[in-house]
Design a protein around this nucleic acid. Sequence first.
DNA 1: ATGCATGAGAG
DNA 2: TCTCATGCATA
Length: 409
Amino acid sequence: MGDLFSGLNDGLISRAEALAAVDIKHQGTGGPGGLPQLKHDMMYHHSMGAPPPVSRPHHQMGHMDGLEMLDPISSSSMTTLTPMSETPTHMHSYGMNHVMNHHHHGGPLSGHSAPGHHPGHHGGHPGAHHPAMAAAAAAAAVAGLHPDADTDPRELEAFAERFKQRRIKLGVTQADVGKALANLKLPGVGALSQSTICRFESLTLSHNNMIALKPILQAWLEEAEAQAKNKRRDPDAPSVLPAGEKKRKRTSIAAPEKRSLEAYFAVQPRPSGEKIAAIAEKLDLKKNVISFTKEDNNPDALLMASPRNSHDFDRICLEPEKTIKVIMPLKICLTSISYPLSIIMQSDSSNIPTYNRNDKLKYYNYRPISLTFMMVKIMNSVIQETFINFIIIHQRISATGHGFIPDNR
DNA sequence: ATGCATGAGAG
DNA sequence: TCTCATGCATA
């Protein structure tokens, strides 16, 4: 294994650097080498507040073997690369400066992110904008932590979680939130789609996008809770809460039925569609209520999901236009592989979710990335077999076909 | 929740 | 042409 990755290292790095030179824009203060993506990864990792990355986290069940295979690699290459990751400067370069001035069609986030919130500080100098935070920021900088609470992935993650919980407590759907944003009357902020709210909550937006959206959603949340508190809303202020109470009541399964289902499940955890229908009929429940026994939710079935096996990858590698999605533990970003993968993420033209919340243990941050055919091709041209192996390894431990690690809760 | 498409802005 | 944010439609 070790050979596998170290062999791949040199070729990839040089190729990667070539790519970096082309693809990657300046990422702020000069860290060592020109691999800003890595900083990002590093940052996130550090900021995850996880136990030392090298320590062997016990991830859940099926992933174990894969992780174990990878462990020695990461620890060994860690040695060489760690210094880089620890580089305290530039922590907040955080990449994306070049993105900050993007103007998107119609979106509420035109250009500078976070309208109405700490004007200007997002524009690529995420230093301490609150005087009060300056000290903390400085301290954080010394400690190698991200000084800016608004751009701190931990904070973003925490906020997203909080947001979701409180939204649900308010009985408001993602779609409701999206629409209500327009009523907030924040400058430059219009409605958003359910998709976007969903993506925010699930941290499947770009980091930049997360940062931009956060203050907006925060504003909504505060307003919504205020309005919920005072039943008598200011008639002038448009409600940011959904109008009618038209929520479908939650299905509840009576104890006897539940026992039946559980008993059945013990015998036949994966009944056919007809069986499910029959059960539903018998228990006088809707079919979708019984759907928890479907293959989708069977952990054993997860590895069956697409991409199913190495053959799929092989095929993909021969098929232009295909995009394959791979999930890797962030830990891998700390290894010799990190450069090329970072660059692939940068170069990929499709949407690249930056975060996800599936890592309950906080030891790893699983990060979905997409590899376009071109990138695969480049990778392959450098280290053909090795790359295939690499993919397979990760496929084994993490591919779900949905782009995310299952919770396995 | 997410694959795919769109259109803006930057280069 | 590329990247990115975003929405639509639908699994």
